[in-house]
Structures are given as C-alpha cells and as structure tokens.
C-alpha cells in the first residue's frame, strides 16, 4: 500500500502518466485508489501529434494496470519520508 499512500499525498499536483501503449497524459492528479487507478483533471496529451484525438479530453480515468510510469513533480518527492516509508513497509509494518 506504499504507492497508494504516496500517490494520495500527490493529489492536486501535476503528474505525467505514461501508459503501456506509449500514450503520456499530463494533468492534475484528482484521485487514486488502492488499485492505483488514477483520475486526472485538466489533462493534455504530451505527444499531441501522435494522439490528436486525446486533445479534447479534460478529465480522465486511467486503469492502474495500464500505467507504465508516473512522472512526479520534483517538489512532491520527499526523500526522507520515502526512506522511512519504504523501511516501514519492508518490515511488514
């Protein structure tokens, strides 16, 4: 559940979600659930020439299982917090 908790902290921030079909969508993280399904708002497609039809999409729901990467805002990465969290998770706590 580490990623779930972590992504919940990123709600409201700008992220880029890269799908396994190479589509990359940038937007404000609206919500995330335990399956890492992701809802984005104010989205825009990073590679608009390749995926012109996605231009119109303002909010979208992305299935967790099709996500390849989530690019995080640098200010949303708290190294200390992540260290602690991963250690706690590693102990099975």
């Amino acid at each position: 559940m580490l990623f779930f908790s972590y992504f919940k902290d990123l709600v409201g921030k700008e992220v880029t979600v890269e799908l396994k079909n190479d589509l990359a969508i940038r937007g404000t993280l609206h919500s995330v659930d335990q399956y890492l399904n992701i809802k984005l708002e104010n989205t825009r497609v990073v590679d608009q020439e390749k995926f012109p039809h996605m231009l119109s999409v303002r909010n979208c729901f992305i299935r967790g299982s099709v996500v390849r990467y989530v690019q995080l805002p640098p200010e949303g990465v708290d190294i200390e917090l992540l260290h602690d969290a991963t250690r706690r998770e590693a102990r099975g706590g």
Binding site: L19, M54, S56, V57
Partner: peptide, 24 residues
C-alpha cells in the same frame, strides 16, 4: 479491457460530446 475513459467535449476532436474509451 477498458484502459482509460474520459469525457470528451472538444468539437475539434469529435463532433459531439462523448465518453471516450481506450480498449486494451
């Protein structure tokens, strides 16, 4: 198999507002 779904309202992308889905 529904990878993504979204509300599409921009007439330039599609003539009518719709639910847009990508299918795996």
């Amino acid at each position: 198999s529904v990878s993504l779904h979204a509300v599409s309202r921009d007439p330039e992308a599609f003539t009518s507002p719709c639910i847009y889905t990508q299918i795996d």
